[in-house]
């Protein structure tokens, strides 16, 4: 290996791009998470018709985050964005008990898709600042996350509104992506 290729390798490691998919039901808080990652104002958010995409620079990684609308009529389009995904972030509104089942069904369908096989999964149990929020561990049980085979996953309690927990989740994302890159 020549010096030049070593240098090039070092450089490419530093600028590794990650394609991250942000999915979940409507009103889960995907856009709020996206905006808080990009350090933008979060008080003027409207429901996402279609999708938003933002590039977030973190130490060592360039994250291309795709936030796709969660409305039922948009969900059939989710598949169009699966290609080349490095990591899936699934956002759940922890106060929306009525739709836990619905969100579980959607998640399971995602995980069964071939294009997402082996893609690490981070679940944000969002809206923890509200008194009626379910605990992350309870949500993990409900979704039977322990039965997921052959997939790296993590559940992270957070409040995108207060900016709590989001960063912890992203650190996990980078750690996981870093480990995966080394394996390659």
């Amino acid at each position: 290996m020549g010096l030049l290729s070593i240098l090039r390798k070092l450089r490419s490691d530093h600028h590794k791009e990650l394609r991250i998919l942000l999915l979940g039901l409507d009103n889960a808080g995907k856009t709020t998470i996206l905006k808080s990652l990009a350090s933008e104002k979060i008080d003027q958010i409207t429901p996402t018709q279609g999708f938003n995409v933002k590039c977030v620079n973190t130490p060592g990684f360039k994250l291309n985050v795709w936030d796709i609308g969660g409305q039922r009529r948009i969900r059939p389009y989710w598949r169009n964005y699966f290609e080349n995904t490095d990591l899936l972030i699934y956002v759940i509104d922890s106060t929306d008990q009525k739709r836990f089942e619905e969100t579980g069904v959607e998640l399971r369908e995602l995980l069964e898709d071939e294009k997402l096989s082996g893609v690490p999964l981070l679940i944000f149990a969002n809206k923890q600042d509200l008194f009626n929020a379910a605990k992350a561990s309870d949500i993990a049980n409900l979704l039977k996350l322990h039965t997921l085979n052959g997939r790296t996953w993590q559940i992270q309690a957070c409040s995108a509104l207060k900016g709590e927990g989001v960063q912890d989740g992203i650190e996990w994302v980078m750690k996981t992506a870093g480990a995966k890159a080394k394996k390659k």
Partner: peptide, 18 residues
């Protein structure tokens, strides 16, 4: 409510930041 383009069965969550 979906007929007039709200996301779910209760529009209350759709007004958000506006």
């Amino acid at each position: 409510w979906g007929n007039i383009g709200f996301q779910g069965d209760d529009p209350k969550t759709d007004f958000r930041g506006m």
